[in-house]
């Protein structure tokens, strides 16, 4: 397929090509790079994949990685769900809850100590 506009492009692409996949996205979608073996292609999604967070800009919407200890995040420095083995406390992933808070092993969060 010769690189051209919109024919045979993945759903969210505005432009794409055989080898590179999406080159640009339809409005309001997030551009993500996906690696499959040696290949690296562009994909357009309505929300970023797990382990990534989205930032919207006037000209492009991009996904970027959360920190290594975080599964889903709002920004790189603010986690919304930690990887297993970590407790979530105000956007941070901790191996141990700080003094004054207790570890809730069901929700994997640090919560106020209920007396």
């Amino acid at each position: 397929m010769h690189p051209n506009v919109s024919q045979g492009c993945q759903g969210g692409c505005a432009t794409c090509s055989d080898y590179n996949g999406c080159l640009s996205c339809k409005p309001r979608l997030f551009f993500v790079l996906e690696r499959i073996g040696m290949k690296q292609i562009g994909v357009c999604l309505s929300s970023c994949p797990s382990g990534y967070y989205g930032t919207r800009y006037p000209d492009i919407n991009k996904c970027a990685k959360c920190k290594a200890d975080c599964d889903t995040c709002f920004t790189r420095n603010f986690c919304t769900k930690c990887k297993s083995g970590f407790y979530l406390n105000s956007g941070k992933c901790l191996e141990k809850c700080p003094d004054g808070l207790e570890a809730n092993n069901h929700t994997m969060e640090c919560t106020s100590i209920v007396h």
Partner: peptide
């Protein structure tokens, strides 16, 4: 080892894999 890079992956603001 051979690895393909999408043209948009080589930008300042794009993620380093």
């Amino acid at each position: 080892k051979l690895l393909q890079s999408h043209p948009l992956s080589l930008c300042n603001t794009s993620e380093d894999e």
